[in-house]
Design a protein around this nucleic acid. Structure first.
Length: 287
DNA sequence: AATTATGTTGCGGT
DNA sequence: AACCGCAACATAAT
């Protein structure tokens, strides 16, 4: 599932596709995907999206002339958005294999939004962990408050980052995956970040030196910024709003590279399990 | 053919 | 509180 760069890719593409189109009809194929909210369709009909925000991996849709109600979307492991109009299908998210012949709505379509101009937006989600749901301003504020700072933020506080690491005994990888600590990193970008920073994913967070912490902060920011410019990473399923693959896949150094030579020292990349997640690292370069 | 893996995260138990 | 393991679910790969 999409991590910050993939969610940002989806956000940027949806921004210039769905804004100000009027919602005519909403079809919910899987009630669980809208948090069992039976007011879901009713609430959105006649409305239009005015803006799309993102914090971490959470998308926040604003509605025209509506300050109290928002639409939240989380893609979790396999969620994706596809947009369809007269020029064809374009999509964004994760799950259906990119370049699949898309039938929309299809087997994994959970929610469909139909606009008055004939275009439509589909929320697809193979595994069904993701959601789109209506939330009040208060709920949105609460959700936002739960996120830690994003590594790509201009005002990222490295000192705060370093100090917090010192209080944690969990493996550094587990801490970096904690969205309440830093927002946006997921399994792929954590592995890539720790490789660049030269830190082993299993290291206890409080044993990471200040210098290494700075390297981690810098690497995560650079990696995710670069990934955004190339449309994210497609490891298995991620597809952007056009059904295209993310090009950061070509830049991956360790993720999915087990048993292949480290790009820096040629030692074979190892794959182990850390914090319950498949974890890739170079036993030589990462201390 | 059963087991294991999968870009996430929230819950329940220690 | 901090940490860990697992469950939510569908599919593909060993």
């Amino acid at each position: 599932m999409p991590e910050l760069p993939e969610v940002e890719t989806v956000r940027l593409q949806l921004l210039h596709r769905i804004l100000n189109r009027r919602i005519k009809r909403v079809e919910v194929f899987k009630p669980k995907s809208v948090a069992d909210n039976n007011q879901f369709a009713k609430t959105l009909i006649g409305k239009s999206f005015s803006h799309i925000d993102r914090i971490g991996k959470l998308l926040i849709f604003h509605l025209v002339k509506e300050k109290k109600i928002f639409l939240l979307a989380h893609l979790k492991m396999t969620g994706q958005f596809f947009f369809h109009d007269l020029t064809g299908i374009s999509g964004g998210g994760h799950t259906a294999t990119p370049n699949d012949t898309l039938k929309l709505p299809g087997k994994h379509t959970r929610v469909a939004f139909y606009f008055t101009d004939g275009s439509s937006l589909y929320f697809n989600d193979l595994r069904g962990f993701g959601y789109v749901k209506i939330a009040t301003a208060k709920e949105v504020a609460g959700a936002k408050a739960r996120f830690g700072q994003e590594p790509i933020a201009d005002d990222f506080d490295t000192e705060l980052f370093t100090l917090t690491l010192k209080r944690k005994r969990a493996p550094i990888k587990a801490v970096l995956l904690d969205q309440t600590f830093v927002a946006g990193l997921g399994n792929i970008y954590v592995d890539e970040t720790l490789f660049v920073a030269g830190v082993r994913p299993t290291r206890q967070a409080n044993k990471v030196t200040e210098k290494e912490a700075c390297a981690i902060a810098q690497a995560s920011s650079e990696i995710m910024k670069k990934a955004i410019t190339v449309g994210g990473t497609t490891f298995q399923h991620f597809a952007d709003t056009k059904g295209a693959r993310g090009n950061y896949t070509n830049y991956l150094q360790v993720f999915g590279k087990q048993n292949t030579p480290c790009p820096r020292c040629q030692t074979l990349i190892k794959k182990i399990r850390v914090a319950g997640r498949g974890t890739h690292f170079c036993p030589t370069c990462q201390k």
